[in-house]
Amino acid sequence: MTARQLFKTLQWGLILFCLVFSIVGGVAAERVLDVLQCQPHADPALRSCSWLTNPIAVRLTPFLSAGSIVDYPFVLLTHFWGLLLVWGLALVAARWADRHPAAAAALLQQWLPRRINATQADVLRWSVTGTFWLLLAGFIVFCLALGVPIVGNQNARAIMESLGCSPGTFDPFSSPCMKAPGFWTPRLSLYFIPLAGPLLAPVWLVMGFWDVLLGWLALIGATFALKSHLSQRANPPSRPHPSAHPMRRP
């Protein structure tokens, strides 16, 4: 697919997406929910969405409760602004590649992996090194997202809302979904304790995710040890040549 064809595809796809959800958003959302077989609900016992389909269903549900067709564009902008932003950036990039093919080709050649004569040992070493840095970066981002005061509370609320649970404002534990078992709810419920919840995010991070953090650190340590071992095998220490240091005569 050329850059112009990609631009046209993204352009007409965005126009069609916005027209459908701006004119018949309720009908389109209902059809998508039927295909996904997902009906989000505040009560976990009545929710039929999986962890993968629930974020999509939560953004489609407001179309079903819209008052009139006039509300559809506002619902679209409110709940799909991230998708529209990424779509718009892709359109700009495709348009730029269409108008500047030489620069786009040079940039593409720069980012594409070059063909090299790599052995299986090299591929294994690169894979382990990439895995180590991904684990380390993910660990740092996870700790910052849930360990910084106030920020951890907001991220915890965003995670719960993406799962279809909306904690109460004055009494967070009034929502029935806050008592549901699972991985996230018991661990994130500490962040919603009045007053102390937003301020003691580092404490809640350790108390709620201590097993996850220990397992994560163990994986980081294991991949680092394996990376160091493979690097030493690939670059063995050079031994001095016997002739470099001649023996002194007595």
Rank of each mutant, 00 (worst) to 15 (best):
L19P: 00
W81D: 10
A225C: 10
A103C: 09
T169D: 15
G215A: 08
G67W: 08
T9C: 08
D171R: 08
A93D: 04
P55M: 03
D34Q: 15
S166D: 08
I150Y: 13
A42Q: 13
G221W: 15
Q109P: 09
V151P: 09
P149S: 05
P73S: 03
V203P: 02
A66K: 04
L134R: 15
T169V: 14
L107Y: 05
Q154K: 15
G152A: 07
R157V: 06
S50Q: 07
R114I: 01
A104G: 07
K8V: 11
I56C: 11
S174L: 07
P40K: 08
F209Y: 12
Q5Y: 05
G182H: 08
P202F: 14
C177G: 00
G25H: 04
W87Q: 07
I220N: 07
W126P: 06
V123L: 12
P176S: 13
R157E: 06
A90C: 07
D171N: 12
W216F: 02
A145P: 00
V128F: 01
F224Q: 13
P198I: 02
W96H: 10
N54K: 08
W184G: 00
A45I: 08
I220M: 06
C49Q: 05
Q120S: 10
V70H: 11
A29E: 04
R114E: 06
G208Y: 14
V24F: 07
L205W: 04
H245V: 03
C165Q: 10
L195G: 06
L108V: 01
A201R: 01
M160F: 09
G197T: 00
L213H: 04
R157K: 12
M247V: 11
S50N: 15
H229D: 03
V70A: 13
T9N: 11
G152F: 10
W12D: 15
R95V: 01
F63W: 01
A196W: 12
F21I: 11
N153M: 06
G221E: 12
R157L: 04
T61V: 08
A42I: 01
L36D: 02
T169P: 12
T169Y: 12
N153D: 14
L226C: 12
V58D: 04
A158R: 04
W12R: 09
F7V: 05
W210I: 01
T119P: 08
W216D: 12
L52V: 14
A121I: 09
A103I: 05
A106K: 03
H100C: 01
P167F: 03
V75D: 06
L60N: 08
M247E: 10
W184P: 00
S189T: 13
